[in-house]
């Protein structure tokens, strides 16, 4: 009991540290990728290749003046960043980032915990993450913020449906809501060479999932809640200093979680050649896959223009959702006929 608790605490601490660090360096990465795509330089002054830039940014956030608008609803204004970042941090605990390794003579599973409705847990927290944005928009007592908050809530509710529907295809295939089970079910090969990844069975599902994930994380081309050209900065217009940083962090956390989930659901999770003999490899495979998907996110961000609001709603309700439903029906039917 005690050792189990200890193991948990250690895992949580490690994952937390890794996530926070990753978030910092993702901002660095994003700026470098942007520079690379747009044929410019990007941050390169602080430290070698600008590698210490995130540290500098963090210090700047901490020392900036913390402004609270006088007309704001103070309690909710303060609570909103927390409401945004807490679910973002909580989601990662159910994601398996590797198979079991032996450390200090002890079998350690590379996931913080395992819930038999893990996926529902994830979806539930994802649906709660909207409150941070909504409350921020409302409590700032600013028209831009309010518009941003309204847009964000409408957008997230709309795309959550497509997201959930897209996942059902994978659920039907794996027969479990437990993410560890889902990852394990994708081990092995078809015809001796093709990995048994769900992406090959659910290409449409993955595309829907990926688009919906873009929308859920409010990233371009779905960044209307913070569209700087129209709404200044959307829901966090009034935020500054560390509270702004918390929204910033929660966005990147959601990005990491979404990509990790995509890897787990569609790209075989930690699976890869040689995992059974060398369990450490599983962690490597997982991180590489996630990195690639994150890179894809960034690539899209600097490639596509922003949607108009009605186009966004059209895409969500009239294209993605019906397509996702068709995907579910087809998958279930094929599975039923095959069994």
């Amino acid at each position: 009991m005690t050792s189990l608790l200890l193991e948990w605490l250690v895992k949580i601490a490690v994952v937390f540290a890794v996530l926070i660090t990753s978030v910092a360096y993702l901002s660095y990465m994003e700026r470098r990728v942007a520079g690379w795509i747009q044929i410019r330089v990007g941050p390169n002054r602080v430290g070698p290749f600008g590698l210490l830039q995130p540290l500098a940014d963090g210090l700047k956030f901490i020392f900036k003046e913390d402004i609270i608008p006088i007309k704001a609803n103070k309690l909710l204004y303060l609570a909103a960043p927390a409401a945004a970042i807490v679910p973002a941090l909580m989601t990662f605990i159910v994601i398996p980032y590797g198979s079991e390794i032996v450390l200090f003579g002890k079998q350690i599973a590379l996931h913080v915990t395992r819930i038999n409705v893990g996926l529902l847990y994830l979806l539930g927290l994802a649906s709660l993450s909207v409150y941070g944005i909504v409350l921020a928009g409302w409590s700032s007592n600013n028209k831009y913020s309010l518009m941003g908050g309204l847009r964000a809530s409408a957008q997230m509710i709309s795309y959550e449906l497509s997201l959930g529907m897209a996942i059902i295809g994978v659920l039907v295939l794996s027969g479990s809501l437990d993410l560890v089970n889902i990852a394990q079910s994708q081990s092995g090969y078809w015809f001796g060479f093709l990995p048994r990844w769900n992406i090959f069975l659910q290409p449409v599902g993955f595309i829907i999932f990926y688009i919906a994930a873009l929308a859920e994380t409010n990233r371009v081309p779905f960044d209307l809640p913070e569209a700087e050209a129209e709404l200044v900065a959307g829901y966090f217009t009034e935020y500054s200093s560390m509270k702004f940083a918390m929204f910033f962090m929660s966005e990147y956390l959601n990005l990491i979680t979404s990509c990790s989930l995509a890897v787990t659901l569609y790209f075989g999770g930690w699976n890869g050649p040689g995992v059974n003999s060398h369990p450490w490899l599983s962690l490597v495979y997982f991180l590489v896959k996630v990195f690639l998907l994150i890179f894809l996110f960034m690539w899209i961000r600097f490639t596509l223009p922003r949607f108009r609001y009605d186009q966004l709603m059209w895409l969500g309700w009239k294209f993605l959702l019906p397509l996702a439903i068709v995907n579910v029906v087809v998958t279930s039917t094929v599975l039923l006929l095959a069994s």
Partner: peptide, 28 residues
């Protein structure tokens, strides 16, 4: 009742209450 618990969050907190909050904001 894990499933119901999850649904409580997803449906109630995540959808119905968001709708309420949305309307409250809309009427401001």
């Amino acid at each position: 009742a894990q499933f119901v618990a999850a649904m409580q969050i997803i449906v109630y907190a995540g959808a119905i209450m968001v709708l309420f909050v949305f309307v409250i904001m809309l009427l401001n």
